[in-house]
Design a protein around this nucleic acid. Sequence first.
DNA 1: CATGAAAGTAAGCAGAA
DNA 2: TTCTGCTTACTTTCATG
Lengths: 182, 182
Amino acid sequence: MPNSEKTEVIRGKAQEARPLDAFDRKILGELAQDAGLSYAELGSRVGLSAPAVHERVKRLRATGRIRGTVAMLDGPEMGKPFLAFVHVDSTGWGKTKELLAISELPEVEEIHSVAGDACMLLKVRCASSRSLEGLLARLYALPCVKATRSYVVLSTFLERTPQAGITEALEETMNPLDTATE
Amino acid sequence: MPNSEKTEVIRGKAQEARPLDAFDRKILGELAQDAGLSYAELGSRVGLSAPAVHERVKRLRATGRIRGTVAMLDGPEMGKPFLAFVHVDSTGWGKTKELLAISELPEVEEIHSVAGDACMLLKVRCASSRSLEGLLARLYALPCVKATRSYVVLSTFLERTPQAGITEALEETMNPLDTATE
DNA sequence: CATGAAAGTAAGCAGAA
DNA sequence: TTCTGCTTACTTTCATG
């Protein structure tokens, strides 16, 4: 069927607008916990046939809802028992080039720019306090870095990837201004 | 083979002690980026046969180096564009029961206890500033919570799961005390 | 290397716009 | 009717002993 590609192109990003239905949420919920499930098993859990669920997963991947499937490695087992969050006060504005350099380090897992009294926030996992020191040294070597504050993790109670669910109850407000408008 | 189990038991956690070799690191590096690879493809990338690489992956899973394989979901696409890190000052000590309650919320992705001027550090991803407020309200409802500081993420430059690599160069020290002993 | 299971494809059908 | 999406049946690839 030579026309199928064309159809995709014509529809363009229309599929991105399609909201998630209950089936999609259940599928995503399962896959966020275990992406190793067979389509048959996944289908029986959400109440769909294997090809149907396969089709939906393909769509969820294509539209970017699923960014990929990865193996979750264990930090300590990998020889990196030191987890820390580093707040970075910087002058000037987050030069992409400088960030590129440190994002290459396998020790650096997250880099965010944040509002609040810090400009950048890093999540780093490394072998020892020594290597954390080495990483901070690299940071201070950057001209824009003014100060850092490190929060060393003592123990981790929960650590997971983004979940599909939304807690509607959190939208409740205690603000009298809002109740007035409602 | 009825004796294989026995051997395993006798060796006990000996397999955990087995250090990662270069092949293991390469395998883990690939799987941390894409766990959807076939064993054949994985084998050709690291220079091993498919069954060989399969055996290694099985061992890496059994010994806990690989904690599981999950689908990475896109926060904004899931209707949760608000990412924030919340520092919690608490009195008394991290009652597990109370943590259990908030770790059930799909908005909460990480809970750590940290050294530094905060006691707990949360990573939360939610639908709106309103729901972040709702989550803070739940936190303050806990008797041990004294204060919170929230760092709202403006943009994310890097976000990934633990990596296999270790940067040896980070172990370099600038401390004269250490160079003296060496 | 061989077997069996699972992924992926194609064709047909039912329900909703 | 036309379109979207589920199901059954089939092919092919891959995991696994």
